[in-house]
Nucleic acid binder design. Sequence first.
DNA 1: TAATAAAATCAACGCTGTGTTCAAAATCCC
DNA 2: GGGATTTTGAACACAGCGTTGATTTTATTA
Lengths: 194, 194
Amino acid sequence: MEKSHKDHRVRVTKMLIRRAFTELLRQKPIQSISVKELCEQAGINRGTFYAHYTDIYDLRTQMESELMEDFQRTLDPFLDQHGHPPTPAEVTADIFNCLRDNMDICTVVLGEYGDRDFAMRIIALGWERCHDYYGRLPIKSTPREMELFYAFVSMGFVGLMQKWLNTGAADGTGEAVNLAQRLVDQCVKALFQD
Amino acid sequence: MEKSHKDHRVRVTKMLIRRAFTELLRQKPIQSISVKELCEQAGINRGTFYAHYTDIYDLRTQMESELMEDFQRTLDPFLDQHGHPPTPAEVTADIFNCLRDNMDICTVVLGEYGDRDFAMRIIALGWERCHDYYGRLPIKSTPREMELFYAFVSMGFVGLMQKWLNTGAADGTGEAVNLAQRLVDQCVKALFQD
DNA sequence: TAATAAAATCAACGCTGTGTTCAAAATCCC
DNA sequence: GGGATTTTGAACACAGCGTTGATTTTATTA
């Protein structure tokens, strides 16, 4: 149950489960993946699965959590060594780089049958990082408008991310990062109009 | 199975099923709603459900289809009587008005446990309507960029729609329509930058 | 209104997946 | 090598699925 970096058997078992899971997730939505089917694909006993996870969703949640930690870990040092508050452009570039580095997991977690709420959490992380930057802009908007604005840009960002991941993310981050940054910038400008 | 506008019993049964479904959808995601549970909530026999729908997802799909037809029906005459190609602003206003008119169904179909793909289809309908307008803009972008742009704005629009529906859509369409329009306009401008 | 057609009900069926159990076998770590 | 831990395999009761057929209820129309 705990972080058993110790036992070799546990690591192998978990690896088999996760590999089978991502494989199945390529083919069908999570709600139609059964524990039985997953275990057969992984070649392990059903009881073994229940020794590590309570159900399929618990499995996904654990994978997402670890991915999120990776995200944090990868972003943090980069930001520190800059010594200044990060610009949205830098954070955007970072996010896409992290996506590319974890493409295997991302394409399933964020893929056709993925978990959009998780994608939203990644974006929320980005917003946090840009907090200083956006906080200083002289934006005059009602809280209500800010709420709607945030919903638009966050979901838009997620949509772009997913599209990029699912249609040849291999052709580099450049084009996507550039466009994403321009789009967010333009959207921010909409907050100055009345 | 067919459009039985005839039999009173069928209409009552379907109404009971749909009411129970939307009620349950307020409480939990669709994947954890069982046919058994739905029928108990609706107070009908399980066999009766299977006489009209193959499964829960078929039920949702049928409801969405009818909602989409309503959307088309509501939008079409409005556009015709104008006599000119619709502007994005008009289409945006229409979409939000339709959402408000069908708020009961929309808040569940597009709610927390809703179907985002369906929301995307609504937006696609909006894009179609604005086809003439956007087609005339002298946009120079790669197909790849257009693809990513479309993903961003569509998903962004969906996010704003959902946020608006789930947090007091009652306070009128004005603010949301206004902001949505400004955001889309600004995003389009991003396509002119290089 | 009565006859006929259609729909809903009820009980039961086999089937599949769930989550848990236990003893036995396999594997790891010291 | 030996004790501890993990995995296995088989079984369990349980719950939902999707279908069936006989029966009752309800609507249509003649």
